[in-house]
């Protein structure tokens, strides 16, 4: 009874709801039956390698790519019928920046606002506010082209906020940025979350997913292979710690030889991963058993390990 009530509540507050969502391009099926519910106020992630179907799913949610099959509701409306109405209330940050290079930084924000039918006075004030948010006030009247990658990304995000969206879609927001620019961007996205903006993020970086997402799905080959919070997923599919061992190729033991020392052993081209509750203890046992690695590293287990467990492959090759 209470379960039913909860699910009804959940649906009522769901910003995005997909059932059996599919996308075909000719013979190729990029998304093969995806179920997703995103609640108001949460940051939801699609984690997966390139080609997993994340971007195609995002484009369907953004109402720029008609679905091939399945049910989809965004903000309680059907994208096939109410595309423009939905797009008026969401913000989209595409994978590659598509800023208007014929306009200045400020004009990019103002003109984009005009596409939403906002008044001239409103977009003028809003642009000033967003330039501040994106830390681009000093570059306001410069052309877009000479901006750094991080600046362009921040401008693209600021642009997506011009209509004060209820839902922000970010497709690989930090791909190609240097570490400093990534951290600055994460900080800005966290600020938006605190302001109550619902966000959907795709990424193939597990650290990004762990940093930003309340809840995420792991996608591979067009389907969802796992779902939960980052902590839940690690708990469910991995151990507390991981011992990474590198061997001289000539002296590298077969994974089976180490199997009894850990819960699970994964073999990667350059190293062996031993999944265990206590890394230091396992390291000592490995030495006692007579194996001599070139190097050993104990670390917390991460979403990367979850992904490896689920698909047998690493996220970033």
């Amino acid at each position: 009874m209470s379960g039913l009530a909860a699910s009804v509540l959940f649906v009522a507050d769901g910003l995005v709801q997909a059932r059996g969502l599919r996308k075909r391009f000719g013979d190729f099926e990029a998304v093969r039956g995806v179920d997703v519910d995103v609640a108001r106020g949460e940051v939801f992630g699609f984690l997966g390698p390139n080609g997993a179907g994340k971007s195609s799913t995002m484009r369907m949610i953004a109402c720029v790519s008609p679905r091939s099959e399945g049910a989809l509701q965004v903000l309680g409306m059907d994208p096939d019928v109410d595309g423009p109405r939905i797009r008026a209330r969401i913000g989209v940050v595409p994978q590659l920046d598509n800023l208007d290079t014929e306009l200045t930084v400020r004009q990019n924000l103002q003109i984009y606002g005009r596409y939403f039918g906002l008044s001239r006075a409103h977009v003028r004030a809003k642009a000033t506010e967003l330039l501040e948010f994106a830390q681009l006030t000093e570059r306001a009247d410069d052309p877009v082209e000479p901006l750094s990658g991080g600046m362009k990304r921040r401008l693209t995000i600021a642009r997506a906020l011009v209509n004060e969206p209820e839902l922000l879609l970010l497709d690989e927001p930090t791909t190609g940025l240097d570490p400093q620019a990534r951290h600055l961007l994460w900080e800005r996205l966290y600020r938006l979350k605190r302001e109550g903006v619902t966000q959907i993020i795709t990424t193939h970086y597990m650290d990004e997913a762990e940093q930003l997402c309340d809840r995420l799905v792991v996608m591979d080959g067009g389907v969802i292979v796992a779902e939960g919070s980052p902590a839940e997923l690690i708990e469910r599919y991995s151990t507390r710690e991981v011992l990474e061992l590198r061997f001289d190729p000539a002296l590298r033991p077969a994974p089976d030889a180490l199997a009894r020392l850990a819960e699970r052993v994964e073999e990667l081209p350059d190293r062996l991963l031993l999944y265990t509750a206590d890394g230091e203890h396992t390291h000592a046992e490995v030495a006692r058993a007579g194996f001599v690695p070139l190097s050993a590293l104990v670390r917390r287990s991460s979403l990367e390990d979850v992904f490896l467990r689920l698909t047998g492959r690493t996220l970033v090759d």
Binding site: V64, R87, A88, P94, N98, Y112, Y115, G117
Partner: peptide, 8 residues
């Protein structure tokens, strides 16, 4: 592409 992610 940018324009199409607005109501246009």
């Amino acid at each position: 592409e940018a324009m199409l992610s607005t109501p246009l």
